[in-house]
Design a protein around this nucleic acid. Sequence first.
DNA 1: GATGAATGAGTGTTCATTCAT
DNA 2: GATGAATGAACACTCATTCAT
Lengths: 200, 200, 200, 200
Amino acid sequence: MSPVEKTRKTPRQPRAQASVDFVLEAAAQVLEATGEAGFNTNAVAARAGVSIGTLYRYFPDKSAILRALAARETEAHRLAVMAILNEDNPDVAPDRAMIRAFVRAFAGRSRARRIAVSALLAEADHAELAARFEIDGREVRDARGRPLSRVQAFVLRRAIHGAMRAAVLEGVDFLLSRAFEDELVRLGRAYLGYPVPRAA
Amino acid sequence: MSPVEKTRKTPRQPRAQASVDFVLEAAAQVLEATGEAGFNTNAVAARAGVSIGTLYRYFPDKSAILRALAARETEAHRLAVMAILNEDNPDVAPDRAMIRAFVRAFAGRSRARRIAVSALLAEADHAELAARFEIDGREVRDARGRPLSRVQAFVLRRAIHGAMRAAVLEGVDFLLSRAFEDELVRLGRAYLGYPVPRAA
Amino acid sequence: MSPVEKTRKTPRQPRAQASVDFVLEAAAQVLEATGEAGFNTNAVAARAGVSIGTLYRYFPDKSAILRALAARETEAHRLAVMAILNEDNPDVAPDRAMIRAFVRAFAGRSRARRIAVSALLAEADHAELAARFEIDGREVRDARGRPLSRVQAFVLRRAIHGAMRAAVLEGVDFLLSRAFEDELVRLGRAYLGYPVPRAA
Amino acid sequence: MSPVEKTRKTPRQPRAQASVDFVLEAAAQVLEATGEAGFNTNAVAARAGVSIGTLYRYFPDKSAILRALAARETEAHRLAVMAILNEDNPDVAPDRAMIRAFVRAFAGRSRARRIAVSALLAEADHAELAARFEIDGREVRDARGRPLSRVQAFVLRRAIHGAMRAAVLEGVDFLLSRAFEDELVRLGRAYLGYPVPRAA
DNA sequence: GATGAATGAGTGTTCATTCAT
DNA sequence: GATGAATGAACACTCATTCAT
């Protein structure tokens, strides 16, 4: 996916690509610093060190910036998770690695991501967008080796995701703790019917 | 809790209370119809059939409307859940009843509630607000009769809540299905170590 | 002059007169406390302990309150000056007594008076209003016993008044000092050709 | 002093400077025509032939327009006085020249200046602002060659200024007459102990 | 292609005034 | 006569977007 969903003119020259990047980075910073209320095109352009006219050369309107940012952040998140998963770490089970990757990726610059994504959600068709946030396409099977039903896959992913999301949003103190990670792992395994260690 | 957190002058006359109700109902409708972008004081007042001055007599500013609406919706949700729980229905286990209540109460006018609540979250201290959304104060114990740790309670509640929330937001077709309810129940029971029927 | 220039119905009953007084006193307090910016009819009515409807029964509009207040304050000032002048104080020369009276009368609740008077000036015909602020009607004569010309009388009065006014407005530290009083006295006497003591 | 105390962005392009001037000129005209009551940002922008957005590009808020106008008018006044003083006119004594300059400079567009200045006074610290309105920095000495005390200098300046101010405000017919000028000159000289011609 | 000055519709909010109760 | 809820015109100010330079 191109970083900009719909540009007036797709940038080919490096300078143009740099401008796009500056704008997106500035957008993330403005969102992080001032929240959605302070997110306006002039502020973004100013922080990007780009004129407002240039900004509009690359983004058709304000919400396109948000959309591009959401795409960029989602992609960055996906890559971060993938990177952790691909580390060849035999001591860590795949599901635990996944959860750890998610939590860590979530914890950084969460505000900008959250706002961008929620702005996206506010505008768009939810069902259509849901797919974007799937990261692990691998088929999951239960303890008996049966693939999950559609409903089961939904519940498993959204439950774990929801608990992580809430932890980030509510700023709980145990966000990066081993105990929290353990419980998320247990949740997934118990649901799938794997034997789980007793709770700490 | 009074529907209006802090009015400029507490309304005594019935006409006044009616105005407050009109405004909140109008606010919910505007949110439902146009989203947060279309949520402006003039539109709310117009739809409420009330002058803008009257609106400002009861709400000190725009965000107070949102806060009052979130409070009203949360309270309505709580009451709906309670009502379902209090139905003397011996055929339904308490955890299932709870989940059913949540899903059903969530399903109606979700957009207004979601936006109001998220506006609330955008402004306020997350940790402090989290408590408001707890509905069931009952202590939960695992299959061995031990009370849950703080982290466990958090994970259990937010996981189930997150899956329901995602289902509502994404508008999944199985939202009100028995299968979905079953899986949520299984998720909770498995996590707590209760024997669960095999997945459908 | 009636305290209220033009009432909708001249109050005869004591309760009505009391309401008028409450409103004017409240107006002075509001002006003193918040300046002209905070001077609004609802605030005045509230502080007067009177409903807004009652306020409008006695004052046709907002500026009538200001006019009545200016009249009241001017009259109070006039009476204060007269009272000081009428004290049989043989040790104080009449011109000095006058100046002292003015400065002292000016110094108290100056903000409300100043605002009321300047609001008055902002609306009305200056020439017509000027007469109101003449307090001492006595004819002044110069050292040779000749009456002052119209221009001379104007210059004398406005010069002394202007210096006092500026001292009040600028909040100088010597406002109530003997030195300041002395200089104002010297100014008047020198202008009239009387011998003056050398400056301190 | 720059005409604009603090712009949001200092204008570089000539078009921008022209906008600032248009706004200030329009502000003076609106003040002159409608008084402070009619002084609103939309009216100023409209009369300036400038959009409201442009107005706000150069002035952070409404009162900044007033402040800038007061500064501009004060400066214009100062320059006018200086110009008259610098005319090499051996027939006119310096004190008379000063008074003449003041009166003449005061007489034009007095309303706008008065309102702008009084708006300034209404907001700001009086003592701090007083200095701005000093025009002649020259030390004044009395007939015996002694410098004036602080109180004396205050009384002298404010007295003459007050008489002029009152004459302008009250619109007296003798404002530009020789007689008025003579009396102001006499007032100053008598106070300082110089021999004065007998009153006309 | 870049710039940034200009635009103006839109929005939150105030408050003088009215009038049903 | 008193009350105070309701009204709505008015206004300060923002910001997405355009376009002359």
